[in-house]
């Protein structure tokens, strides 16, 4: 018997029965942690972002709020809002154990900031890390037919902006040094998980996993990832259903990694989530370029280039998803 698939539409990713989907995720999470992993609860790093908030809400429902330990892991570049929102989230779900672990000192020990700032300073001559804000970003459009490359942008206290294409050596040094942040957080989460005999809940969504927007052995290091199969707009749907605080739902997703404010769209995805979800779905399910272009109000050339961009990202980040080879 052949099945007729739905025509491509802007509603194609909408979850019809949200209650049943949430319950399935909760049941699977409970089974994965208690039966497969043989752990008695969950440790989760909460950032005040939508993904970790949804994972925490799911964990609280799966294990009970007294079997979930929420860890806030700010460092000197984190926004103050992140901490306030994380606290509000833990309170909303009655999490009995919330722990604040400031990882700044650990990062100073690794010389994370110095190594990063040295690399930025060698590209932007008058960069002063004590007063200036900095970030790295992709400036090309996702429909560009060239692979994405990063530029560094420095913002002076008077608002002057200086941006340059990053040479390979400095780009790699900036990424490698800032990755200490995610890897230090992972170490701290496992400290608490091992002390409590709990599992670490990973918070990446489908785009982060498949496009490689995570740090190997950093935020990619976890025991179970309950929302790794969900598109970002579906994560928002779950957030609304689960009662995640509105301020978290309304907040623009940021990297919270560099000193200058930076959205995830600027840093990596190159297009808004609402568009990316649908076009990714179209690409993954082999909808025709013309059909997707018509629904999305874009040209077929644009969609073709975006399909290529997705293919390139999945291919070039394969290394991140690979287990050690032996």
């Amino acid at each position: 018997m052949s099945t007729i698939r739905k025509p491509f539409s802007k509603d194609i990713l909408h979850i019809e029965n949200i209650e049943s989907v949430c319950n399935e995720i909760i049941e699977k999470l409970k089974n994965d942690v208690t039966r497969k992993l043989q752990r008695r609860g969950a440790v989760i790093g909460i950032s005040g972002g939508i993904d970790s908030s949804v994972c925490m809400a799911l964990s609280a429902k799966a294990f009970g709020s007294n079997k979930v330990t929420a860890i806030m892991l700010p460092e000197q570049d984190s926004s103050n809002d992140s901490l306030l929102l994380a606290e509000k989230l833990a309170s909303k779900f009655n999490i009995t154990e919330t722990i604040l672990e400031d990882i700044t000192k650990a990062l100073e020990g690794f010389e994370c900031y110095k190594r990063r700032d040295d690399a930025i300073g060698s590209v932007i001559n008058n960069f002063d890390p004590t007063t200036d804000k900095a970030k790295i970003e992709i400036k090309q459009d996702a429909a560009s037919n060239l692979p994405p490359v990063f530029s560094v942008t420095v913002i002076k206290p008077n608002g002057d902006v200086n941006s340059k294409l990053l040479p390979v050596k400095e780009y790699l040094q900036i990424v490698a040094s800032t990755n200490f942040k995610q890897r230090s957080r992972m170490s701290m989460l496992y400290y608490h998980a091992e002390r409590l005999h709990y599992a670490v809940i990973g918070t990446p969504n489908k785009h982060e996993v498949e496009q490689g927007f995570f740090v190997k052995h950093g935020d990619g290091g976890a025991d179970v990832m309950p929302i790794a199969h969900l598109y970002k707009t579906q994560v928002y749907q779950l957030a609304n259903y689960l009662g995640v605080p509105q301020e978290i739902i309304d907040r623009t997703p940021t990297t919270d990694t560099y000193t200058a404010e930076q959205t995830q769209e600027d840093f990596f995805y190159q297009m808004p989530f609402e568009q990316m979800d649908l076009i990714w779905y179209g690409w993954e399910n082999e909808y025709s370029i013309d059909e997707v272009a018509r629904v999305m109000g874009k040209t077929s050339d644009d969609i073709q280039n975006i399909y290529k961009n997705f293919e390139r990202k999945r291919k070039t980040t394969e290394y991140l998803r690979m287990r050690p080879i032996f």
Partner: peptide, 12 residues
């Protein structure tokens, strides 16, 4: 790039 001979790191 279209043929996948170089990727984004290759371009850098």
């Amino acid at each position: 790039f279209e043929e996948g001979i170089l990727d984004s790191m290759g371009l850098l």
